[in-house]
Structures are given as structure tokens and as C-alpha cells.
């Protein structure tokens, strides 16, 4: 690691600034005047449109708009939704727990499926179990999220009637109902990540199993199980941990369509709708918060990387 922890934390700020500039520029590039969208069926009245522009600072230059927004964010004000006038911070507070719950459940499912199948695949390399594990992993990876979601709703909810087809009950209201409404989307999300975790666990395990220190451990007559768990898996987990935190970011992308299909009122659904409605403060706010979480998770991954990898610790 070329930077200390302090250096890494200091990097967060420029990254976030870059994210905000990126989002601002992309928005500016997108066709579709937000004032016209907001004017809805009144868009025919140029006075209405001009008034909306003025009120939202859309008649100012881009740098002025940007600085205005950044200034507010610096004071902890993320602005308000152009569409519903709800404060963006309130929207974030309402939706973050939903997606977080979905994400954690998906990740647990992914680890439960991905890591054991990856280990089995590596240890029983080229045997039938390797193929079975591979098949499980690849099948999950090869299915479009939204397609799997729709098929699950049709099968599990409509035909079998086991689980509610959609909607969301917060954990705080009713734990079992909450789990019932989130288990299918979490499975859909986790399933795809499981495959990625499995593949990386397998390939990392394969390479560590061939490393000298593992060979040495084997040669010393340590039991195969011990070697796998103590030496190989530990080192194989390094890329898995890094990847896992990275995949948490991907999760949000996956959540975009999955939340749409299951009508889960989370971050993903909110941001897609906001893009299509040109509700820029919501897009900016959500992307910024996501980016912040993502960067923090990355930092965590780097720290874990050093903690687990003794070679790097020495360096």
C-alpha cells in the first residue's frame, strides 16, 4: 500500500467530487428539458416553463448550478425532489434501509452459495462435483435478473401462492412479513453474485492450493481439510473479500431492475424513475450517497486486504 490509511481517507473527497461532476455532466448531456417534463400537460404554456426554469436555477450556467448544489450539500442540504417536493435527505433515509436490507440478504445468500461451491469445485477439481458446482454458479450468472424475477413471481406467487408477489414490509413492522417480501428479490440478486463469488473462490483456491506454503503444509502431513481451511481458503478469501465489497456496488445496479420487477421501494427504483422523470436533485443525491457508501466499502476492502494478506502487511 503506497498510501497510509489517512491518505486513503483523503482520497474519498476527490473521488466524490469527481462523481458529482460526472453526474452533473451526464445530466447536462441528456436530452429532455426537465422543465418541460415538470410542466407535464401544461408544457404548452411558455410562461409556466420559464417560471419552472427560473425557480430551479435551470436558467443559470452549469458551473453556477453546480456550485449552488455543492454549496448546499456542504451544508448538509441535498435539496428537494422536483417532482414531489420531498427533501432528498428524507427520501434517502426512507429508502436506504430497504436497499440495505435487500443487499445484506442478497450478500448472505451469495456467500452461502458461492463460497462453499467454489471451495468444492477447486478441491474436487475436474471431478463431477466441480461440474455440478460450476453448473450452479453458471446458471445463476447466465440468467437476466429481471427475467428470473418475473419467472419466480409467476411460479412461486401466482401458481404456488407461497410468497407475496411484490411490495415491501419494513423489518421494524413485521419481521416475518418483511423477510417474506424480500426473500425472492434477495435471491435473484444474490444468485448472480453467488456465481461470481464461486468463480473467484475457485480460481483463487486453485492458485493457492499450488503455492509452496500449501504444498509444504501438505508435505508436513497436515490433514487435507485443515490445509484447505487454514491455509488455502484464508488466502483465497483475499480476492473474494475485495470482490465482495465491489459487488455490493454492482448489487445496486442489479437492484435497479429487480426492485422494479418486485415493486420494492428502494434506491434502485427511485433512481431509475428519477432519471426518466429528469428529477435531477434525486439522481444527484442518490448517486452521491451510493458513491459515498461504495468508496467507504472499498476502503474497508483495502484494510481487510492488508489484514488478511501477511505478505502485504510486511511490505
Amino acid at each position: 500500500m503506497r498510501f497510509g490509511l489517512g491518505g486513503r481517507i483523503a482520497q474519498i473527497v476527490p473521488t466524490l467530487i469527481l462523481v458529482s461532476v460526472l453526474v452533473f455532466c451526464l445530466q447536462q448531456l441528456m436530452p429532455g428539458d426537465p422543465a418541460l417534463v415538470l410542466a407535464g400537460e401544461e408544457r404548452g404554456d411558455p410562461r409556466v416553463v420559464a417560471q419552472i426554469r427560473a425557480e430551479l436555477w435551470l436558467d443559470r450556467s452549469l458551473p453556477v448550478q453546480y456550485l449552488h448544489w455543492v454549496g448546499n450539500v456542504a451544508q448538509g442540504n441535498l435539496g428537494y425532489s422536483w417532482r414531489t417536493r420531498q427533501p432528498v435527505s428524507q427520501l434517502v433515509a426512507q429508502k436506504l434501509p430497504v436497499t440495505a436490507q435487500l443487499g445484506v440478504m442478497a450478500f448472505v445468500i451469495a456467500v452461502l452459495i458461492g463460497v462453499p461451491t467454489g471451495v468444492v469445485a477447486a478441491v474436487k477439481r475436474n471431478g463431477p462435483w466441480d461440474y455440478v458446482a460450476n453448473a450452479i454458479g453458471l446458471a445463476g450468472l447466465s440468467m437476466p435478473n429481471f427475467w428470473l424475477g418475473i419467472m419466480l413471481i409467476l411460479l412461486v406467487s401466482v401458481h404456488l401462492g407461497w410468497l407475496p408477489p411484490s411490495g415491501y414490509v419494513p423489518l421494524s413492522e413485521d419481521v416475518s412479513q418483511s423477510l417474506a417480501t424480500t426473500i425472492m428479490p434477495a435471491f435473484v440478486l444474490g444468485n448472480a453474485i453467488a456465481a461470481i463469488l464461486m468463480r473467484h473462490t475457485r480460481s483463487a483456491m486453485l492458485s493457492t492450493l499450488d503455492q509452496d506454503y500449501v504444498r509444504t503444509a501438505r508435505a508436513k502431513g497436515l490433514s487435507e481439510m485443515w490445509v484447505i481451511l487454514r491455509h488455502a481458503l484464508r488466502n483465497a478469501l483475499i480476492p473474494v473479500v475485495t470482490l465482495g465489497t465491489l459487488e455490493l456496488g454492482t448489487l445496486l445496479s442489479g437492484a435497479v431492475l429487480t426492485e422494479q420487477v418486485f415493486s420494492i421501494p428502494g434506491f434502485g427504483k427511485m433512481v431509475v424513475d428519477a432519471v426518466f422523470n429528469r428529477d435531477y436533485p434525486v439522481v444527484q443525491g442518490v448517486v452521491l450517497v451510493t458513491a459515498f457508501l461504495f468508496v467507504v466499502l472499498n476502503l474497508l476492502a483495502d484494510i481487510l486486504y492488508v489484514l488478511i494478506n501477511p505478505r502485504l502487511r510486511r511490505a
Binding site: I150, I153, L154, S157, V158, G161, P164, P165, S166, G167, Q260, V261, F262, S263
Partner: peptide
């Protein structure tokens, strides 16, 4: 709000 029509119909069936 339920944007997906299949989901909407499924919810009607289940009485949600």
C-alpha cells in the same frame, strides 16, 4: 404504485 402490470395482476389474484 405498481409499475409492472404482471405484478399488479398477481397482487389482484392474491388479494394483496
Amino acid at each position: 404504485p405498481m409499475t409492472d402490470t404482471a405484478v399488479q395482476v398477481a397482487n389482484l389474484h392474491t388479494g394483496n
